[in-house]
Write a protein that binds this DNA or RNA. Structure first.
Length: 213
DNA sequence: TGCCAGGCCCTCTTTAGGGCCTT
């Protein structure tokens, strides 16, 4: 029996890839994801994935994933169906979601799995909530908000874990500032699309609206 | 460390250009 619902569960995910664009032939080489249920990490997914091509020295240096490691990794045809099962129809979160969503769609498309649209971007939301931060790179925000980390960066699960902490911290900061009892996922999605000047008014209105539901 | 692309935001804008962020 399914024990969680779409509303209380989000999947925070991160891809390591061979480059920046699946349209230019780049492939995913590692997936990391954390399932959050009612604000708690209850399950994790981490898998290297053989991309069918050698990766560049830059990528090896960037994330520490080597060609030798990928030779032994499972192919897309094995990993993606398992990942599609892991994420089910839950809402998705990523840091700079436009990047991860393109790779997710591309890899799901290879195995004929359903593509996804219900993404929220932690980077766009962080820009709204923390305009005073030095910048909005994941590592900078982890330091800026003193979020838990083990010092590992640019590996899929480690980045997904940090993004999950950032997501929960942003939710809590919004609750503290605007008296939300709970924040619907759709409000977070809309917040990312709200202009900087309109952010405070938007959250005030949404808080009042949600409290009446 | 940087480049590739794409989506988004901001502003000295909207008939545009540049910066940020992801690997």
């Amino acid at each position: 029996m399914k024990t969680t619902t779409n509303s209380d569960t989000v999947i925070v995910l991160d891809f390591e890839t061979t480059g920046l664009s699946p349209d230019c032939g780049d492939r995913a080489i590692e997936i990391g994801a954390v399932k959050l249920v009612n604000g708690e990490a209850v399950e994790r997914f981490q898998q290297l994935m053989y991309p069918g091509q050698r990766i560049s020295r830059f990528i090896e240096d960037y994330n520490g994933i080597s060609n030798n490691m990928l030779k032994k990794a499972a192919p897309c045809e094995e990993v993606m169906p398992a990942f599609a099962k892991f994420i089910e129809d839950f809402n998705l979160v990523a840091h700079n979601a436009s990047f991860d969503s393109r790779f997710l769609d591309a890899e799901l498309n290879r195995v004929k799995c359903k593509q996804r649209e219900n993404f929220a971007c932690s980077m766009l939301i962080a820009r709204r909530l923390y305009p005073e931060a030095p910048n909005h790179k994941l590592g900078t925000l982890v330091r800026y908000k003193s979020l838990p980390n083990d010092g590992t960066f640019h590996r899929a699960l480690a980045d997904a874990e940090m993004t999950a902490h950032l997501w929960l911290t942003m939710m809590q900061d919004i609750k503290d500032r605007h008296s939300f009892a709970a924040i619907p996922f759709e409000v977070m999605q809309k917040l990312a699309r709200t202009s900087k000047q309109a952010t405070t008014g938007f959250l005030r209105r949404e808080s009042a609206r949600v409290s009446k539901i």
